[in-house]
Simulated scan of single mutants.
Amino acid sequence: MKTRLIIFILFTLLIAKVCGQVQSNSDQYPLLIPVNESFQRLKIEIPCKCITDSLEVVVSVNVHFDNEVSDTTTVLTPTKIYIGSIIYHKGTPEQVYLSNKQSLNNSFDRCIWKTCSDKFLVWMEYQPYSRFFNRENQPKGGKGLCFTYKVMLTPDIKLP
Rank of each mutant, 00 (worst) to 15 (best):
M1C: 09
M1E: 13
L5N: 12
L10F: 07
T12N: 06
V18C: 04
C19R: 06
Q21L: 02
S26E: 01
Q28R: 13
P30I: 05
L32M: 02
I33Q: 02
V35N: 01
N36E: 13
F39Q: 00
Q40H: 09
Q40M: 07
L42G: 00
I44Y: 01
I44M: 04
P47W: 07
C48I: 03
K49L: 09
T52Y: 11
S54K: 14
E56L: 10
V58S: 08
S60F: 05
V61E: 02
V61P: 00
D66N: 15
V69R: 00
S70R: 10
S70T: 09
S70F: 05
S70P: 05
D71K: 12
T74G: 01
V75G: 03
T77R: 09
P78F: 03
P78Q: 07
P78D: 05
I81R: 05
I81K: 05
I81T: 06
Y82S: 07
Y82C: 02
I83M: 04
G84E: 14
S85G: 07
I87H: 02
Y88T: 09
G91L: 06
G91D: 07
T92E: 10
E94Q: 11
Q95E: 12
Q95D: 12
S99N: 13
N105T: 12
D109T: 04
R110G: 10
R110F: 09
W113M: 06
C116N: 10
S117G: 04
D118A: 10
D118G: 01
D118T: 13
K119E: 10
W123L: 01
W123M: 00
M124C: 11
M124V: 06
E125N: 12
E125K: 13
Q127M: 11
N134I: 06
N134H: 12
N137P: 04
Q138W: 15
Q138E: 15
Q138K: 15
P139H: 06
G141K: 10
G141H: 11
G142L: 15
G142M: 14
L145S: 09
L145D: 01
T148S: 12
T154C: 08
T154I: 15
D156A: 14
P160W: 08
